[in-house]
Design a binder for these strands. Structure first.
Length: 482
DNA sequence: ATGTGC
């Protein structure tokens, strides 16, 4: 057999057919993965003989490459192995308050007033002019800091001092190598009006209560206490990143064809990293990644302002950490330099890989959200995760498709074409303890807790395999979604 | 994920 179970947590996909190397999947023996997702991972193992190919416990089918994959390559890069939502990621912010004293619903209502939810939304209050946008694309959060310092109106919303304090708590300090000069005007235009918007799908802002601390020492070092209110943000680079991804996936198909590179399917098109097409993608992807870091920074400010308005005082609300889910970066692993694509996967560096950061003793914080009705986790990277290029999953992973969960509804007359698998009653039951604000009540069941895997079992797999250790578990109090 | 469609 080409698939071999190694232990309770690991599955090996042995080199067969188009594969140039083995692939490793972290999958608990009590869990299953779509065979199509595993085939996509096999395809991804065909592009570079020196590649490291890993599937995470939430692996599922994506465009060309599965969501929940890590692909470390020596020579080639693939826009599909990053995906459409470039630098989609998570941020966790702390409050000094316990859940019993916190006006959860009023704060959620206040956030909603300032934060546009759902697809296609723009935020006129934060619309950026050309040169401000260029600064943000080229320099990420530090670019935003300089915009906030030179523009009084934006500075009032963003609070530059608090932003500066956040910098060391963001992966790569919120800035990747990037060149706005390689971006299309169309991509820039889509971004200019979308800063400070949440987006749709699985993106969210969630007010949570720390339910359980599992590592007291680490929790103390991070400022986490049982019963405390925290806020989690999940969003990405919006239409700008989508535009960059689609343009470069098309360029990659043409470039690969011109160079006679073969691939199992066109969705997986790849290009030499050291080529015009490769460098342009990395520079454009960097811009989109910077835009996403900045978007989470802006939303953090909107949340802080909403909280301060309701409580009539600022709570500070420092950032615990901000991580990327969809990105490719040139990293050193052992003696090798690899282009590490993480698609629906989180970097989880141990302390030894966090030199020159504030986490050099502790390791990198890792944020894993569950579904909107279930727990989320804070973990820390460990030294034993070299096998996954120090990477873990990014969430619970779906067990049913969006249409299977919510059903398909004909828009014109409202007639149901195909009923969803989750009844309204069951949905309300699973959400009874959570205050839900959403833009579109007709599609929200796509995100129902029952549509996702059991996040506790997914995290058990990560811990059991030695990829990270749990610091704390949080439960949702209120959630805002597109 | 996405002004969700070549």
């Amino acid at each position: 057999m080409s698939t071999r179970r190694i232990d309770t947590y690991r599955l090996e996909l042995r080199k067969t057919g188009v594969m140039k190397t083995d692939a490793l999947v972290y999958l608990h023996e009590r869990m299953t993965a779509e065979s199509e997702a595993l085939n996509q991972l096999r395809d991804a193992a065909s592009i570079d003989p020196g590649a490291i190919v890993v599937g995470t416990p939430d692996i599922h089918v994506g465009y060309g490459v599965p969501i929940g994959s890590v692909l470390g390559t020596e020579e080639f890069i693939s826009p599909a192995a990053v995906g459409y939502d470039i630098n989609c990621g998570m941020r966790l912010m702390l409050t000094p308050m316990g859940a019993d004293d916190f006006p959860v619903e009023r704060v959620a209502d206040a956030i909603r007033r300032d934060l546009p939810l759902g697809e296609g939304k723009s935020n006129p209050a934060l619309s950026l002019g050309g040169s401000a946008l260029e600064r943000v694309l080229a320099r990420g959060v530090s670019g935003l800091l300089s915009v906030a310092r030179s523009n009084a109106e934006i500075g009032r919303i963003l609070d530059p001092e608090r932003m500066e304090a956040d910098l060391s708590k963001i992966e790569d300090e919120g800035c990747l190598q990037a060149d706005p000069g390689v971006m299309s005007q169309k991509a820039k235009n889509r971004g200019a009006s979308q800063l400070g918007t949440l987006g749709g799908g699985n993106h969210f802002v969630e007010i949570q209560r720390v339910d359980r601390v599992e590592d007291r020492r680490a929790a103390r070092a991070l400022g986490i206490n049982e019963g405390q209110v925290v806020v989690m943000i999940h969003t990405g680079s919006r239409g700008l990143g989508h535009q960059v991804a689609s343009e470069h996936m098309r360029i990659a198909v043409d470039c690969a064809a011109r160079r006679g590179l073969t691939m199992p399917n066109k969705q997986l098109a790849y290009v030499p990293a050291d080529s015009v097409e490769g460098r342009d993608y990395l520079n454009a992807m960097g811009c989109a990644a910077n835009f996403a870091f900045v978007n989470r920074q802006v939303i953090a400010a909107l949340v802080r302002n909403a909280v301060a308005r309701v409580l009539a005082r600022s709570l500070g609300m420092p950032t615990l950490y901000d991580v990327s889910h969809n990105i490719v970066k040139f990293e050193r692993h052992g003696g090798r330099r690899l282009y590490v694509h993480r698609k629906g996967a989180t970097r989880a560096y141990p302390a030894s890989m966090m030199r020159n950061t504030v986490f050099d003793k502790l390791g990198q914080p890792v944020l894993i959200p569950g579904s909107m009705g279930t727990a989320s986790y804070v973990l820390l990277g460990t030294e034993s995760a070299s096998e996954s290029l120090y990477s873990v999953n990014h969430g619970a992973g779906r067990v049913m498709s969006r249409t299977a969960a919510a059903g398909k509804v004909r828009r014109r007359d409202g007639k149901i074409l195909k009923p969803g698998m989750i009844s309204d009653k069951r949905f309300e039951q699973t959400m009874k303890d959570v205050y839900l604000l959403c833009e579109d009540p007709h599609t929200i069941k796509e995100e129902a807790p029952d549509a996702y895997k059991d996040v506790d079992l997914v995290v058990d797999t990560v811990v059991g395999a030695g990829l990270a250790k749990v610091v704390a578990r949080m439960v949702p109090l209120a959630v805002l979604k597109g």
